[in-house]
Nucleic acid binder design. Structure first.
Length: 304
DNA sequence: ACGATTATTGCGTTCTT
DNA sequence: AAGAAAACAATAATCGT
């Protein structure tokens, strides 16, 4: 295969970049086409204009190899593939029927070789599923690529045998969430996945052990960014809630409780202290817990 | 909307086969 | 060792104010 350099995106220098998060005012980080607030995790922009390779520079000496689609981990063959055409040769002339039959055979053989094995076919299908899940969950590019990388690892470690590819794909997506401290639950993933909750859990558990994922236990703090942004509370409330969460953890009262419930109660109290009176139901609903859970967590919190 | 009370669920433990 | 059962805590549902 001809030498091919990994293509890196270059942005024009005059591209406008926001340096402050409109939500909480702290600095933002831009990487791989995604702009994220460091503090609250708000995704400001996740699809930068692709100022891709310069396709039209045929008249110049092409010393740098800049053509071709970007290499991407989300395609089974990293975006590299070749198709054999049907009706024209390399100069645009039409083909004789004999030549055409020959090319048909060639194409058939080539398409078999392209999916070198069953494993490759599965990888292509699985990565497609990961992409689908990622986009329906509104992931940015970085997170999606991580999920795809996890799926590749799972497949190369033979974790797919005896499990459905859909389950492993969903587990990869969930694992990417866990490794990044996102407060997404398995149930949320299952609503868009093509597998049962039990299958997802099984696949995730085995991935967690075999791949030694750097997944931390879900903390109540992980739920705060999403809650705060959906309820559109001020930065003061947000910080106050985070303090409450920390206090609750230090007091050891979060053990055995649903992190989302703790987060909901902390946010409820924090809002109250800042003269913002949100109803229990409102907060509980977006947190995915019942109002009574919120109340019992709050009562425990008030004892500290 | 909130609080109190009751019902349900989930899960590790213990007992049985 | 595998399954059943009693027990417990957290959560959800319901009702009264």
């Amino acid at each position: 295969m001809a030498t091919r350099e990994i293509y890196t995106t270059t942005f024009d220098e005059d591209v406008q970049t926001t340096t402050e998060c409109p939500d909480c005012g702290s600095s933002v980080r831009t990487s791989t086409g995604e702009t994220i607030c460091e503090e609250c995790g708000l995704v400001l922009e996740d699809t930068h204009l692709d100022r891709g390779p310069d396709w039209n520079r045929y008249d110049e000496q092409r010393t740098e190899k800049r053509t071709g689609a970007p290499l991407t981990p989300t395609r089974h063959d990293r975006g590299l593939s070749t198709e054999i055409g049907r009706y024209q040769d390399g100069h645009g002339n039409s083909l004789s029927s004999r030549k055409r039959r020959q090319l048909n055979r060639l194409r058939r053989e080539q398409s078999r070789a392209r999916w070198q094995s069953e494993a490759n076919r599965n990888l292509g299908y699985g990565l497609g599923e990961v992409r689908r899940l990622s986009s329906s969950l509104g992931f940015g590019e970085r997170l999606r690529n991580q999920a795809c990388a996890l799926f590749r690892r799972a497949q190369s470690e033979n974790l797919c045998v005896g499990r459905s590819l859909e389950a492993v794909a969903a587990a990869s997506v969930y694992a990417a969430c866990r490794c990044n401290g996102l407060g997404r639950s398995r149930c949320e993933i299952v609503t868009v996945a093509r597998c049962e909750l039990a299958a997802l859990s099984n696949a995730y558990n085995v991935m967690n052990v075999e791949l030694e994922l750097p997944a931390q236990p879900v903390s109540a703090a992980d739920h705060l960014p999403k809650l705060a942004s959906e309820l559109e509370v001020s930065e003061r409330v947000r910080r106050r809630a985070l303090e409450f969460v920390q206090e609750a953890i230090d007091a050891g009262m979060t053990v055995g409780c649903r992190p989302a419930g703790v987060a909901a109660a902390c946010l409820y109290l924090a809002a109250e202290r800042c003269e913002l009176f949100l109803s229990q139901r409102e907060i509980a609903t977006v947190a995915g817990v019942s109002p009574s859970t919120l109340r019992s967590r709050r009562d425990e919190l008030l004892e500290v």
